[in-house]
Design a protein around this nucleic acid. Structure first.
Lengths: 224, 224
DNA sequence: CTGCAAATTTACCGCTCCTTTACATGCGAG
DNA sequence: CTCGCATGTAAAGGAGCGGTAAATTTGCAG
């Protein structure tokens, strides 16, 4: 399995660093930012595979953050809580969280939970690649292949194709894609998306496949 | 979502029956056999969607059963355990179980876990659609289908049909539709609506269906 | 039947949305 | 530093959506 990247959202610096060291030691890549303003932009990054979310945060409530993440991403979330009552458990489950851990926890249990959730989320034998027709997108190294040929994708091309593949069969509005590619506080011309789509189409066509990214004028793009 | 069938593997008859009644009340189909010799044949049945497995069984250990099931099936398994130590949690996770619940548990928590696991395992691409007669409007990709044929709709056509379908059976005035299609500050000729309705009718008829959009002269349109 | 308003239909074409090419910038590897 | 690649911007081109106008049809009232 590819190297998994975990995002830690936790306000206590000591806990954060301990966790980071611990998980790094066990072979995970870890992001542990200390600014909670921009935590959401971290969370929706492509390369985050799991989020460890402390529910007990200052400023934004962890519940709020969880919901916000779920609006735009299905990345697995494990909620860490010190509130040890059932309501929390229930609410956590309804928030779209994948699991939760109650403090204090044994580190080995945390590891087991993480493993389990990751396995669940990314286990499908072909979870390492998505397909449209005979076109394969390899998640591990960001390449596409078609009938023997292959091409490397840039970050943007990957994000676009990945998102469209996940939503295969549904129209994805340009707006939605824009939000997925660029944090909303960054102002990027709408045309830039078009350019990136063109570049992606070029690469796919260079493999001999006819363009699978359909444009629905005024609505968005759709992969079929 | 279809009706889900849960298999309970539990030795204590009272618990078994309580669980069965409880889950049945919440809309699940439940199998709760009392013979543990043949539990494995139950477990691998096609129509079992989830297994609730008590780890603390006589004769066969629950661990053994879990492993056996996993040899031949990927059906989701939730392990129920009263042993409240870490080893159990760890081992359960490594058995291929999808989740576990520690006794004593609150029934609402059990429900939440079951829901979560089922949702993960059987989430479908949700073919959300509205219908009139045999005509289907697919919300995800903005197409209509009728007896195997498909047609793509433009933005306006989609809006019109969608609105009429939502209000199926009642008359929708032209003014109401106009407001729904164009922001009121934009002045669009009344005739434009007629043209768009015509275009929509064309596409529906091209699928071999007779026009379902009835005009009530002086009142509006109605879908029947 | 006649007249008129409402709705349909056809044809046209402008304008928005999207594509595409070319160029500028900037960052990372060596 | 310098080269190369990724990526954003600018500008020109194109295609089809969809609005307009005019002709035609439908339906209702007197």
């Amino acid at each position: 399995m590819q190297k998994m990247k975990i995002l830690i959202i936790e306000d206590a610096e000591t806990v954060r660093n301990e966790l980071k060291d611990f998980l790094t030691a066990y072979g995970y890549e870890v992001e542990a930012p200390d600014d909670f303003q921009h935590v959401l932009s971290y969370a929706t990054k492509e390369d985050i595979h799991l989020i460890l979310l402390d529910i007990n945060l200052p400023v934004f409530d962890g519940y709020f953050i969880c919901r916000e993440i779920r609006k735009s991403s299905q990345v697995p979330i494990i909620i860490v809580t010190s509130r040890n009552n059932e309501m929390d458990e229930l609410m956590s489950m309804n928030l779209g969280a994948d699991d939760f851990v109650t403090k204090p926890y044994h580190t080995q249990i945390l590891l087991a939970r993480i493993d389990a959730v990751l396995k669940r989320a990314y286990k499908q034998p072909e979870a390492l690649s998505l397909t449209v027709g005979e076109l394969k997108l390899h998640l591990a190294n960001g390449t596409i292949s078609y009938k023997g040929g292959h091409q490397e994708l840039t970050k943007n091309e990957f994000k676009i194709l990945h998102y469209l593949m996940v939503k295969k069969g549904s129209i994805v509005s340009r707006e939605e894609l824009m939000e997925h590619l660029w944090s909303s506080d960054l102002f990027v011309d709408d045309n830039t998306l078009s350019v990136n789509v063109t570049r992606l189409r070029r690469k796919i066509e260079s493999l001999g496949m006819e363009n699978p990214i359909e444009t629905r004028r005024g609505l968005g793009y759709i992969l079929s």
